[in-house]
């Protein structure tokens, strides 16, 4: 394969500069860092495993009727009390057996995904916004504002997420998905604030930010155009991993009885199942496995995304 003549013969300066980038067609196209990360992700099997699982869980949450036609609330105590799973009956109500009230464990698990997924996503969205803004202001403006915001972050860090959530939720007599979201977001934004603050401080010192300041760019432009896009990668990674944590915390709260009420949820089902653990372990194990698979998928996805964005691995 012949190398194309790289530098056209012309004047000393401009021609000298003008060697087209070697490397052929794929480099002649514009490739952003995001596109590079996507290329990296595509070749990572872990990404695909976690992505497929997550799509499945999202589908369950969005259209549970796709997976089962059984009503999760339908109880048939006489016929199905703690019915054993029929592992061969795929997608049938008795696939994973029945619980202590004669409800289909399969149907309940499918419908339980919705609470977990909604809470996971909403809390993550909330903490990313709250933590991101706090971290960005603390990191960019520094000084007294940073000191105050950082100490505030430290104080909240002192409160365990679960404990804080419990105390706050006690105040509500009627608890819906949204109260749980509020409680978890209130005590869960700190890691995001920290990551954002660190990333902003790093980017703030970058030469291209100095260059923008030298051009006379205002604070808004510097923050939104130069700093924010360069801090997204670490924030996305931390947020993805945190999402898993929120899902499991929600389940824990529901298990403890101070989370969701009268909603189908993995946490509530796990909580109910502990009474019959000896007689029918499947009642507990099935929602528990779905829960840990969801959490695991998010953590794996976060890892894969981090690897893709890490330029050192390129």
């Amino acid at each position: 394969m012949l190398n194309p003549t790289q530098a056209p013969e012309a004047g000393p300066v401009s021609a000298a500069a003008e060697a087209p980038l070697p490397g052929g067609s794929e480099i002649t196209k514009a490739r952003s860092l995001g596109q590079d990360a996507w290329r990296e992700l595509r070749s990572n099997p872990i990404f695909w495993v976690s992505a497929v699982l997550l799509v499945l869980f999202l589908l369950m949450a969005a259209v549970p009727s796709l997976f089962t036609s059984t009503d999760p609330g339908h109880a048939d105590l006489r016929n199905h009390y703690l019915g054993k799973p029929e592992w061969g009956h795929f997608f049938q109500p008795d696939w994973f057996g029945y619980n202590g009230q004669g409800q289909s464990v399969y149907a309940r698990t499918i419908y339980g995904a919705r609470a977990s997924v909604i809470i996971g996503f909403c809390v993550t969205l909330g903490v990313t916004l709250v933590g991101g803004v706090i971290g960005m202001f603390a990191g960019y403006f520094g000084g007294l504002l940073d000191t105050l915001l950082s100490r505030l972050t430290d104080i909240f860090f002192g409160i365990p997420l679960l404990l804080g959530g419990m105390v706050l939720l006690q105040a509500f007599t009627h608890r819906t998905i949204w109260t749980v979201v509020l409680a978890l977001a209130t005590f869960g934004w700190m890691p995001l604030a920290r990551v954002m603050r660190g990333a902003v401080i790093t980017q703030k010192q970058a030469d291209f930010v100095t260059a923008a300041r030298a051009l006379g760019a205002g604070t808004t432009r510097i923050l939104l155009r130069h700093i924010l896009p360069n801090t997204l990668a670490p924030v996305i990674v931390v947020a993805t991993i945190a999402l898993g944590g929120f899902v499991s915390t929600e389940a824990t709260l529901s298990y403890l009885g101070i989370g969701l009420q009268s909603t189908v949820s993995w946490g509530v089902d796990i909580s109910d199942a502990q009474n019959v653990l000896r007689d029918a372990p499947h009642v507990l194990l099935v929602p528990a496995s779905f829960l840990s698979l969801t959490v695991l998928s998010f953590i794996l996805l976060g890892d894969a995304v981090r690897d893709a964005f890490d330029p050192k691995l390129r």
């Binding site: 790289q6 530098a7 000393p12 000298a16 060697a19 980038l21 070697p22 490397g23």
Partner: peptide, 21 residues
């Protein structure tokens, strides 16, 4: 000034690597 750029190691020019410059 030597014209052009140092070669891309993924695609070293054939023959003498310095030939384009």
């Amino acid at each position: 000034a030597i014209k052009g750029l140092p070669p891309n190691l993924l695609k070293i020019p054939t023959g003498c690597a310095f030939n384009p410059r």
